[in-house]
């Protein structure tokens, strides 16, 4: 598992520097569209606050010792952690109906959804994250494991199941050869 907080990374981070403004601008231009789309498709809403929070937290750590691909994985890990924290908080306050609907998948989308997006929204939160990271962001199993705090071997199995489940949902909704 790629643990960015493990001892070797922590030691290198001590000698490392935070991003400069120019580096951040370039990194933001490259990664923000993808991260925003990830948040949009996982939560069901355009949540720019979550996007802000993820980048602010990333800027708070030293990353010059990491490869660009690792920094991107780290960003997704931060966003996923924030998202899961919010989800847990919302679960604890079930009475807050609007918020519960926000992450449960039965939300009122803020954009008209295509049939495929509706089917994708029926998956569990973790399944959606995994499929998106693997098939849209092109992350390797090891990187997904790092982002979602799972074992690499578990990712392979869970990804396979998520894919099968999406195919079943698509078939049930009339998509041919799903």
């Amino acid at each position: 598992m790629t643990d960015f907080l493990s001892a070797p990374y922590a030691a290198a981070a001590e000698r490392s520097q935070p991003m400069t403004r120019e580096e951040f601008e370039a990194f933001y231009r490259e990664t923000a569209p993808g991260l925003r789309s990830y948040i949009r498709r996982i939560t069901g809403n355009h949540d720019d606050d979550l996007l802000h929070d993820a980048y602010v937290r990333l800027l708070g750590v030293r990353t010059s010792h990491l490869e660009p691909r690792q920094v991107r994985s780290y960003l997704y890990r931060i966003a996923t952690t924030i998202l899961c924290d919010r989800w847990r908080r919302v679960r604890r306050h079930r009475a807050w109906q609007a918020e519960t609907a926000y992450l449960a998948g039965d939300h009122q989308p803020d954009l008209p959804e295509s049939g495929f997006a509706r089917c994708f929204g029926q998956l569990e939160l973790r399944e959606r994250m995994m499929l998106w990271l693997a098939h849209v962001e092109g992350l390797e199993h090891k990187e997904i494991a790092g982002v979602m705090a799972l074992r690499s071997a578990s990712v392979r199995v869970l990804l396979f199941r998520a894919r099968r489940r999406l195919e079943r949902i698509l078939r049930e909704n009339g998509w041919e050869q799903a």
């Binding site: 403004r21 951040f24 601008e25 933001y28 231009r29 923000a32 569209p33 993808g34 925003r36 789309s37 949009r40 498709r41 355009h46 720019d48 996007l51 802000h52 980048y55 602010v56 800027l59 295509s114 495929f116 997006a117 994708f120 499929l131 998106w132 098939h135 849209v136």
Partner: peptide, 21 residues
């Protein structure tokens, strides 16, 4: 299909990076 979803999201303008910085 997933990449099409991502492409559909790109029409919306991004928040300012300066505010985040």
């Amino acid at each position: 299909e997933l990449r099409n979803l991502r492409a559909a999201d790109e029409a919306r303008p991004l928040p300012s990076s300066g505010a985040i910085w």
